[in-house]
């Protein structure tokens, strides 16, 4: 199958084929392309970013490492269901090992409008 490598802006068009039980990547300009191609057909992963509503605003969050793509919506639901704390700071872990992965969910931004006089 064909796919576009997303590792850098070069956007190589990769051809990933199974030949004699081995995965062969072609069309890549660098080794990262091969790595991506194999990963993508064997165990595709994504960094997931999302938003959680908190009192008076939202926090933005992400996974610390890429997680298996098939867990995408389980992770989003876990973010929704995570208990709401009193305060949040950038970098706080709100879920450890989300959905059994080795990734944590961390706070990337806090959006609470200041109370105006």
């Amino acid at each position: 199958m064909e796919m576009i490598c997303i590792r850098c802006p070069n956007s190589c068009v990769l051809k990933v084929e199974k030949k004699k039980g081995k995965i062969v990547v072609s069309g890549n300009l660098c080794p990262r392309g091969e790595e991506y191609g194999i990963q993508e057909v064997t165990d595709p992963r994504r960094t997931i970013t999302s938003v959680k509503q908190i009192k008076g605003g939202t926090i933005s969050v992400r996974t610390t490492v890429a997680v298996q793509k098939k867990l995408y919506f389980d992770v989003l639901k876990a973010i929704k269901d995570a208990p709401i704390k009193k305060t949040y700071n950038v970098g706080d872990i709100i879920i450890k090992n989300v959905c059994g992965t080795s990734s944590n969910i961390i706070v990337t931004g806090v959006n609470i409008l200041p109370k105006n006089k």
Partner: peptide
Amino acid sequence: DIKQYGYYARKQINTVLKQVSTKK
């Protein structure tokens, strides 16, 4: 609010993700 509709409303997570496969 966000995260209210679609699969959030369903019991079963009905993924809309495209499955990658080496067939084709």
